[in-house]
């Protein structure tokens, strides 16, 4: 599904601020893998996610997504293969557009946008059904501007939009980190539900070690731009928070939010 071969990325090369964010990272995700990615600040988790998403191009190496070499492909062109949810709940939706307009945009991800009307009556009906699943009452507010929703509601909507058109890979970038604990839990439950329902291959960056252990079939730990741990299946099930803490201690990259989570 996803094959990353020896990718590297250095920000501000040849300057005092030089930052080798990714060092020869290789990773292969199988169809249906749900991988959680942890690591300290600056470990390269989000950088790896952004490399896959195409926020910028990598310096070396290659990225193959669903059999297609996307290494040099612009961000908006890769979007046809990817569903994305950002850390900032405001990032994934357009505030000035209606709920149904946002959904209609997501329903055309990767398609040519022409002079047809932006939404069809059939879509409105099916969006209503999909929104009902969220149990947030949004199905009755389809023409409300997204800016009127709360952060949690917007993140739930973003998740729905990211999975509306079956993505080859779902990218979640600490998507519950900015929400209060109760809302974060809800959004996470919804994530698991949507991933299972649509059999999605998922790459989830998180700060929360408990979530990283409880969710998904595979766990990756990063440190200083490299993958230092990659466990899956039974091996992952056996893994405990203490094991992870020990590893963190060894690398000396433990940060407060991880201890507290």
């Amino acid at each position: 599904m996803l094959e990353i071969k020896n990718i590297s990325k250095t920000f501000n090369p040849n300057s005092v601020n030089e930052n080798k964010a990714l060092k020869n990272v290789s990773l292969k995700l199988e169809d249906g893998d749900f991988v959680t990615v942890i690591g300290g600040n600056g470990a390269g988790k989000s950088t790896l996610l952004n490399a896959i998403a195409g926020t910028w191009l990598v310096d070396s190496g290659s990225i193959i997504l669903d059999g297609e070499d996307v290494t040099r492909l612009a961000e908006f062109k890769r979007a046809k293969l990817l569903g994305r949810v950002f850390q900032d709940p405001m990032m994934g939706t357009a505030a000035k557009l209606q709920i149904q307009e946002n959904l209609a945009l997501a329903n055309r991800r990767g398609q040519k946008r022409g002079l047809g009307w932006h939404i069809s009556p059939e879509e409105i009906e099916s969006f209503k059904e999909t929104l009902r699943m969220l149990d947030l009452g949004l199905e009755d507010r389809m023409t409300a501007k997204v800016g009127l929703l709360s952060g949690g509601q917007r993140q739930a909507l973003t998740l729905l939009m990211a999975t509306l058109k079956q993505p080859k890979l779902l990218l979640l970038d600490e998507h519950t980190a900015a929400l209060d604990p109760k809302t974060a839990r809800k959004v996470l439950d919804l994530t698991v539900e949507l991933v299972e329902k649509n059999h999605l291959t998922t790459f989830m960056v998180t700060h929360n070690m408990k979530d990283a252990l409880n969710i998904g079939n595979r766990l990756i730990m990063m440190n200083e731009g490299s993958i230092i741990l990659d466990v899956s299946g039974k091996e992952k099930e056996k893994l405990t928070i203490n094991d992870l803490l020990e590893l963190f201690n060894k690398t000396g990259e433990l940060n407060d939010s991880m201890i507290l989570s």
Binding site: K96, G114, M161, A162
Partner: peptide, 28 residues
């Protein structure tokens, strides 16, 4: 009419939140 089309709607998304637009595959 134009801003109600798929293309017009993509332009509105671009102006409102370009990051979101890119994630939806829009060539901003």
């Amino acid at each position: 009419w134009f801003f109600g089309t798929e293309l017009g709607s993509a332009i509105r998304a671009t102006g409102n939140n370009s990051q979101m637009a890119k994630a939806q595959g829009i060539n901003i």
